[in-house]
Design a protein around this nucleic acid. Structure first.
Lengths: 160, 160
DNA sequence: TTGCATCTTAGAATCATTATTACTATGGTT
DNA sequence: AACCATAGTAATAATGATTCTAAGATGCAA
């Protein structure tokens, strides 16, 4: 991504912070700049370490609080991509997953054409442009939403 | 999924354990049965708690060790679906992610038709069959594989 | 049956994340 | 320009998940 686009993204996110009624503190400004001008999807840890030299008094909790505030305000997304986490799936036939954002339930969804997505030419091209030489081994699709039983009692939820 | 298919999956996984040269201990047998006959993608915690009544001396580490052994042997998959985890993404335009299985690098891949996947009729139908009444709010696609720089030094890796 | 590599156990250690609490700074208001 | 209530921050403790370690036990092949 071009440098101009990245600094544009910083401006947009700072504007979003104001719009969301969040106070614009030096710590938040630094975190927003660091996050918005980065294409590598940093972890909270990484952001903290990069900013520590300039803001030696900043607490680690502030990074989490700010990132949480940003994602709650819809200004950034929290991803779960790290390996070795939470759940295990005994089904080794290619398939997708449905995840309920409320209760966290996970279920399989059979995929029509097994490895079809991996060989989708338009996708392969797009991947190649972002990371030349990247070899796609597998594709996951995750459908997030709300399951029927959670939808019933959803009124008590704020704005999922 | 039918009961017959589930117990078939148990047999297949047990056979896989032997084939992989892993010793078949009572603990492992119990874990395999529990995992393979379950469609809810249990966590290590859940498996441990379900088996504790029958195997009160079993250690929690054994569950992790066994699940790790199973996924290393390609007999099950480890998923990262839980909310609020690891990484943050400042890009709120719908897009996909590429993840390198070796170095863990994450990058965005622009998606052609923004919300197109969510409204794909065949997928919507499949989701409806698994979880009737599920409302899909968003779709993620994750392309996993090996990036160019990791592919170079890949010889030192076992069998990723 | 015997030997040895592998597994299990128990508990400590580690790592990421969240909660708590008291202090402080921001931004609207006067 | 000063004030104040609210919201944010720092520091630290707590939690929860996962991994490590050391020592003893067990499965499996010869």
């Amino acid at each position: 991504m071009k440098q101009a686009d990245l600094s544009d993204r910083v401006e947009k996110m700072l504007a979003g912070v104001r719009r969301a009624g969040l106070k614009l503190t030096p710590q938040r400004m630094a975190i927003v700049k660091e996050l918005a001008s980065d294409e590598t999807h940093p972890t909270a840890q990484e952001i903290f370490e990069r900013l520590r030299p300039g803001l030696p008094t900043m607490s680690f909790a502030t990074v989490y609080n700010t990132l949480d505030a940003l994602s709650s305000a819809g200004l950034c997304a929290a991803l779960s991509l790290s390996p070795g986490s939470g759940r295990f799936d005994p089904n080794m036939i290619p398939h997708h997953h449905v995840v309920c954002d409320v209760c966290g339930a996970v279920r399989d969804v059979p995929s029509a054409g097994a490895g079809a997505h991996a060989s989708d030419p338009s996708v392969a091209k797009a991947v190649g442009q972002v990371l030349p030489g990247f070899e796609v081994r597998s594709v996951e699709r995750i459908f997030r939403g709300i399951c029927a039983s959670c939808a019933k009692g959803r009124s008590r939820l704020k704005a999922l």
